[in-house]
Design a protein around this nucleic acid. Sequence first.
DNA 1: ACACGAAGTGTTAGCCTTAACATATGGCCG
DNA 2: CGGCCATATGTTAAGGCTAACACTTCGTGT
Lengths: 359, 359
Amino acid sequence: MADHPERRVPTLMDVADRAGVSAQTVSRVVNGQGPVAARTRARVMDAIGELNYVPNRLARGLARQRSLSIGFATNDISLHAPSQLASAIEGAARQAGYSLIVTIVAGYGLAPVTHALRALRERQVDGALINASLSPGDAHEITARFPDLPCMFMDVPPSAGVPGALLDQALGARLGADHLLNLGHTRIACIDAPQGAVAEQARLRGWEDTLAARGLSLVARAAGDWSPASGYAATQTLLAGGVPFTGLLVANDQMAVGALRALWERGVNVPADVSVVGYDDTAESALLIPPLTTVRQDFPLLGRRAFAHLHALLRSETHPPTLSTPELVVRASTAPPPGPERQDVQAALRTLMAALTRP
Amino acid sequence: MADHPERRVPTLMDVADRAGVSAQTVSRVVNGQGPVAARTRARVMDAIGELNYVPNRLARGLARQRSLSIGFATNDISLHAPSQLASAIEGAARQAGYSLIVTIVAGYGLAPVTHALRALRERQVDGALINASLSPGDAHEITARFPDLPCMFMDVPPSAGVPGALLDQALGARLGADHLLNLGHTRIACIDAPQGAVAEQARLRGWEDTLAARGLSLVARAAGDWSPASGYAATQTLLAGGVPFTGLLVANDQMAVGALRALWERGVNVPADVSVVGYDDTAESALLIPPLTTVRQDFPLLGRRAFAHLHALLRSETHPPTLSTPELVVRASTAPPPGPERQDVQAALRTLMAALTRP
DNA sequence: ACACGAAGTGTTAGCCTTAACATATGGCCG
DNA sequence: CGGCCATATGTTAAGGCTAACACTTCGTGT
């Protein structure tokens, strides 16, 4: 790769020699601390420019005993939430002079997270942000196993007593369920997320509790894996189950896309026959057919906050856990439940329409 | 943070003392190279376990002159393509013993990439993967400015003569355009991506060239920014433009979601009145209403390949640029163009239907 | 019995930077 | 004009690890 086999990348010492000063002086100039005469500084800057010197962060990290890098351990980063978080965290970290090392945690539970953190500790990260569906117990275990590694848990309930910044899943779930209840729905089904995902548990419990407060419970339930295809399959399962429902709570918007499709295929009109509530408010949601009523989660804000808290932690300032409040975005996928007679008319109309519009 | 203020994290030397051997021997055990007697190895392993020793990668990187980390410089990682790539690259890198440092490149062009690579070079990354809409000229400039940093350009045409692994944008664009042409469309509009995005240029040119080969050209054109909302707005612009079209080529599936919505709102039936072709084949696309005909891009494959090539490069094996071929996925959003009379009937039907189904 | 090579281990000298301390220079005060 | 302080710079010793080399201790062939 090297055009000039003899040429090494220049070091601090090379700059020092060229500028006719000691290494320490160059270090002072580079880091902008300690007194340096204006003339000297200028000479050093010139030498840096001429040699195209770049400081070596490994060596600096070794000498300073802090690497100025942080780790982000997360579930599959190609999903909506992790990628949004990564984007926000990277931005905040870079601005504060930190680099971001991303490690993907495969699967749920303690073991894969432990593995990921071990790798991050090898890299001497100054701290870690963890978004990996940990239970409060797991989070405590992590802090015990890595006492020297400041960690922020991004999806652990605040009650856990570990540093955390998270979205209030329970509230979000309640917002969605209450919305359906207030519209008059009583037969409500749900599509939740993979077992083991903490967000899933919190949402499911939030739904159940909200319904229970009105003396109701979920009439049917199916599980997906966050993907649109799984939402589609889950909805088919629900429809095939024979339990009638007029409201459908879905654990994320991507699965809701599949749900809308499955309902559409069966000739079930949304929202006239069934109301659908999503979760996340992805960029697509406002433009679906129909536009999706959903619970907005501000992931960029969460990401920035999480980094800010970790950053404070690194400077030994303690921060209480933060809870960001999601908000309900009402769009056209929800409406009052249909009366029984109306339901028949709708079905007939749809059949007619389908016949007419077919080429 | 430290429970026991006196306790440092154990070093190689601590392990050596405990096992009663020299540091070098511990190093040999940890790295599994060089001859070590079975008994000695066992003693060292025990000491490592007892102390919970973790090697310090900064120090190792400094001593070995390679950090076993690579950089990924990309546009906003919350978008579809970058997040898919990041996921695949991280997996491949981790498996090969490399950590991944992610840097987000803000904006298009040479300057922000240079900035990002400088930061990565500070971190002593062994190589970098770049997905940042660079022109071939920019790519050459980068290799000139960073002669010691092996780079893979993930979105630079192979003709550029720089190491690259990319998806054949021109072919993908051709597939989509040919599909519409073969269905009989002659009035084709497009929604392309931000100026400066290389993918955009390649796709736009591919569309134009393909149409030109049949003596046609795009009848209208609007630009988006990859987001569903921008696709929606662009489609509204096209519809308001007054230039009739029966085929619509969209530069990604997310914008196609917005396009489908805008057409639906205007009562334009897809595919009876207008056929829509997307690009990417996101997880949602098969489940939209109607399911979207699109050009599938295998980003996970691209990510793995890109890393494999970089890895080869790091071992001084030269690899020719690779071109992955996208493939057309035909779904229900495309059909032959309507005859003029049919178009009126459709419109009337839609009006009727909308009136009937309104509660 | 001797040289020889291989296996196993230790020693030394870096890798590049910074913290801590040491030194030199100049200005100012009494 | 000596002494003292602030400013500006240099020196030394880590920081944790590994490459390169040096040194033992064997077993082997002759």
